[in-house]
Design a binder for these strands. Structure first.
Lengths: 109, 109
DNA sequence: CTCACTACTCAGTGTTACTATCTAGTGGTA
DNA sequence: TACCACTAGATAGTAACACTGAGTAGTGAG
């Protein structure tokens, strides 16, 4: 992936994962796969797991261990009230940034 | 500024500054002021100058020292061909990200 | 002659995504 | 058996970036 995208994902990737969890509970491997489907083809698994550890430690998600038929047990993450609040804040910040950049782009054309 | 916005600006702030320079040459203090006008009220001066040093070292801008009537000489930055290319790449990356997030936001509503 | 404004610089810090590697369970196949 | 592919998660070390907080320096107003 481009270095540019790597830097741009900082802060944003967390919001993306929170948004995915906002659609329903999910586990790490699944989230990684969904990100790939969404076009984020080069996001490393390790990156996602590290991010999930962070949002768990900040209390934004509830965690449940669920056995899997195909491999080790899954850690299923569910967005809780605090997580929803964080997601709202993310959309608010993102909205501001996207709005500013849309203006800038329009000015440059 | 929120920690969230701080992280989200990583990578994006550089694009914003390149976009501002795309509108015409400018010097550091001026760029800082424009950012404040644009709503980025809490971006530290030191942050902008450090960023300008980086894009200068990467050869994205041409630099000229111009005397000022009001204070020390100004370092005026002008976007060159390489800089324009970097700006295009930025808009491309940003476009991808903004598109993905728009989809995600629509799904969550 | 102090203050405010202009203009730039720099060392140190925290956060984040990436790389690379490791552990482990299940099922297929040579 | 031995090996591989897929599933599932963890972690140490690194690079990049924005922030904090401080500093240097020139000009003009009070």
């Amino acid at each position: 992936m481009g270095k540019q995208m790597t830097e741009m994902l900082k802060g944003t990737l967390e919001g993306i994962v929170l948004a995915l969890l906002g659609l329903g509970p999910a586990y790490g491997y699944e989230i990684t796969a969904r990100l790939r489907d969404q076009g984020f083809a080069d996001i490393a698994e390790g990156t996602v797991y590290a991010l999930l550890v962070r949002i768990e430690q900040r209390g934004l998600v509830d965690v449940e261990k669920v056995p899997s038929e195909k491999g080790p047990p899954r850690k299923v993450f569910t967005l809780n009230a605090q997580g929803r609040e964080a997601l709202d804040e993310f959309w608010s910040s993102w909205g501001f940034l996207a709005d500013r950049l849309a203006h800038l782009k329009a000015e440059g054309e």
